[in-house]
Design a protein around this nucleic acid. Structure first.
Lengths: 226, 226
DNA sequence: ACCTCGGCTGAACAGGTGTATAGTCTACTG
DNA sequence: CAGTAGACTATACACCTGTTCAGCCGAGGT
């Protein structure tokens, strides 16, 4: 019904609908520089259409964002479903496949920066899936059992995405470039070390906290002495 | 200490100079909603002056940002020096004192979101100090020795700040409010558990990675299976 | 007294923003 | 073939942005 020829200037071989081109361009721009730094005219130019058409299809810039949110959420869900159907269990491979679609991940990370509604949806969805993965890994003896697996998973997820958000700063203090190939070996080794052995030499801090929590007093300190 | 945000009508007892009021208001606004979402007129109104005066004192909005950056960096440094001079060693207390000046921390976190130049400076400074603290803690037997303490510190710092950045999302999946009093017990318990015992049941992932790194092949996966 | 200088203001300017509107063209339908 | 619907464009509009500018005012020096 709405299949039109696309005459426009972007690429003669681009057979995507103008609407799809707008949406894709918006996902890229929003992911790269953020929502408020992106102009409707930018997106229109990148999609090879006029600014008016963007509003014609999506109503407003906010409507375009919502459409992008829905699209990215759906794409993530689709890629996860594919991964599950292919019988993927290995958590390493799981993360690798998430990393695969870079522009989606960029959009997600940018959403986290801006605390957009999509970020909450994606974080929550990622949490549910990770929690299932953690439970499975505990059964398989890969992950140490915990009577607090729910919160532990939430913290680990925050650390993981938080680490991605601060990638640039980690790379700088490590003295390497921000590209994955250069940074990942260092980051992976350090994080694996912490996630395997912890950082504290004994349980004194954990004990101190447990004792404190049991006393019912308002806790006096921040989270961890990293 | 000194009065915080007094929006339109400045308190008659406010003896700060107009320049200081502008700078303080800018730090608050930049920290709350970010640089590009804050207008010069907003800041001027919050400081009780005209928009022209802001530019008169700081040249431009960018100049104001630089001044705020310098101010916040200096304030952080000052508070850290005070902490060191008071003989503070306990990492818990260290983090608590950092948390104390909330508007400075908010400014820093917002800078991290926006990857502003100040964020790099503050992250690097925080890293240097944390690294010294870690070395000291290793000597005291509190932190487990590591032949990779530099990178481990970088990762832990990224996780800590990253966790703060994603505070809202962690709270949501934990089912608690975002305020510190409600969230911190849960967050502290989970992070202490991980930092004390790790999450992996054995060293298989660490071994696999070491083996892989030794082979010299390009690594195939992402950082951790959180 | 006069003068000067810097803090300070109000209005104006130039550019960019999201958005509304009028109109063109093409494809489909009766 | 008329006619309608919708994709699409160009233009204009209203608003907001950072910034500029001419000038006011009070304090301090001579």
């Amino acid at each position: 019904m709405y299949s039109l020829l696309n005459m426009c200037s972007i690429d003669a071989t681009d057979d995507r609908t103008a609407l799809a081109r707008i949406r894709d361009a918006a996902v890229v721009r929003f992911g790269e520089v953020g929502f408020s730094e992106t102009t409707v005219r930018d997106i229109a130019a990148a999609a090879g259409v006029s600014a008016g058409l963007v509003l014609h299809h999506f109503g407003s810039k906010a409507g375009l964002r919502e459409a992008c949110d829905d699209y990215v959420v759906a794409e993530f869900a689709r890629s996860r479903i594919e991964a599950v159907e292919s019988g993927e269990i290995d958590p390493f491979a799981a993360m690798a496949s998430v990393q695969a679609e870079q522009h989606l991940m960029r959009y997600f990370l940018q959403s986290l920066r801006e605390s957009s509604p999509a970020a909450s949806r994606l974080f929550a969805a990622s949490f549910e899936e990770t929690l299932r993965l953690m439970e499975l890994s505990v059964e398989q003896g890969v992950i140490r059992p915990s009577d607090n697996l729910h919160d532990v998973t939430a913290v680990l997820l925050a650390w993981q995405f938080g680490g991605m958000l601060l990638q640039e700063h980690v790379a700088r203090v490590m003295g390497v470039g921000t590209d994955v190939a250069e940074m990942m070996p260092r980051y992976a080794r350090a994080s694996l070390e912490v996630l395997t052995h912890g950082v504290f030499a004994d349980t004194r801090y954990e004990d101190a906290w447990r004792e404190f929590a049991a006393s019912g007093a308002p806790p006096p300190t921040e989270e961890d002495p990293a």
